[in-house]
Write a protein that binds this DNA or RNA. Structure first.
Lengths: 175, 175
DNA sequence: GGATCGTCCTAACGGTGTTAGACGTTCCTA
DNA sequence: TAGGAACGTCTAACACCGTTAGGACGATCC
């Protein structure tokens, strides 16, 4: 429903209708609307977490190619779904910030990504953060300026290559 | 008011109170609440546009130093003010997207920045877009993970340096 | 067989953006 | 100088939102 009508446009009465209930009955299952968003936030990051083994199982051996693949993997997950991107990476819901429990999968994912990147490239923590910001920034730009398009997928590879050059990764055969 | 109580928490009745009116009277001046956000959006970008001459007047001659200065200038403008950042760079207001007239200053600023960067560095358009995404991504990270802190100012310089290396800018004396 | 629990309901509350319609003031014009 | 349009503000009220209160109903369990 969030995907079709918008994450913030979601209404408790709509949700209740969808599951054959009245809005107040939802409060027997969730403490508040924010609690629903909380569960959605946790689920979105858990869903992404579940895709990581696939990614890491088929990770290219060349560090630079691998970094491109990791970035593209996350990009594809969030750039194709505005609602999911807003939920995971932006704070578009009025007074909502995730609970620490809901935050846990996202923390795990980021820590795991950090370890993976360091193991792969030997980059310093600060450089990994720059890489995260770069990927996030490009996803933002995509949704703001070219939602549905594919221009920013090219920019993503270019950005990752810049970063790879900066941390001293050797070129691969795609360059 | 947006700065103190939050951009989306802003209420027409609050705004009306502040100017000694009742909420419906605002509709004699603005067509809707979104029209107010529209005016704020335009004003924020116009305000930033007004600071550009100061920046470009004192622009360092070294391209790399200049790129750092430009990035820091925009960063300082939006990273210190969450409401302004949400207004200018994110879409946190429910059904709101700026009108084309309100969008004009932001388009002017970005086109001008683009020309300046190309003149300064000779970078390709795609690379300029990567630079924009990088700066925006770091501002996002700042507000999400370190609002009020200064960790990301350092990362900004580091990111710009990565980019400068990639487009072939010579080192300056800060490296 | 009766108490308990869980689940759902209707009714309603306070708050939101917004509209309708009335009122007084200002200011131009016949 | 009188009449009237235009303007700006008001109160009252609407529809919608998240949320709470309180009760009806069935299944479960002692």
């Amino acid at each position: 429903m969030a995907r079709s009508k918008g994450l913030v446009e979601l209404t408790l009465r709509d949700v209740a209708d969808r599951v054959g209930m009245r809005a107040p009955s939802l409060y027997g299952h969730f403490a508040s609307k924010h609690a629903i968003y909380d569960a959605m936030f946790e689920q979105a990051w858990s869903d992404y977490e579940a895709t990581i083994p696939d990614l890491e199982g088929a990770l290219p051996s060349h560090p630079r190619t691998a970094m491109r693949a990791i970035a593209a993997h996350f990009y594809d997950f969030t750039a194709t779904d505005l609602a999911r991107h807003q939920l995971m990476n932006q704070s578009v819901i009025a007074g909502f910030s995730p609970s620490s429990e809901a935050y846990a999968p996202s923390v795990r994912v980021l820590e795991r990504a950090h370890r993976t990147v360091v193991a792969l490239t030997g980059a310093r923590t600060e450089d990994v953060e720059v890489w995260v910001a770069l990927v996030g920034g490009l996803i933002n730009q995509h949704h703001a300026n070219d939602a549905g398009g594919s221009r920013h997928r090219v920019l993503l590879d270019r950005g990752v290559d810049m970063w790879a050059d900066a941390v001293g990764l050797p070129p691969d055969d795609q360059q």
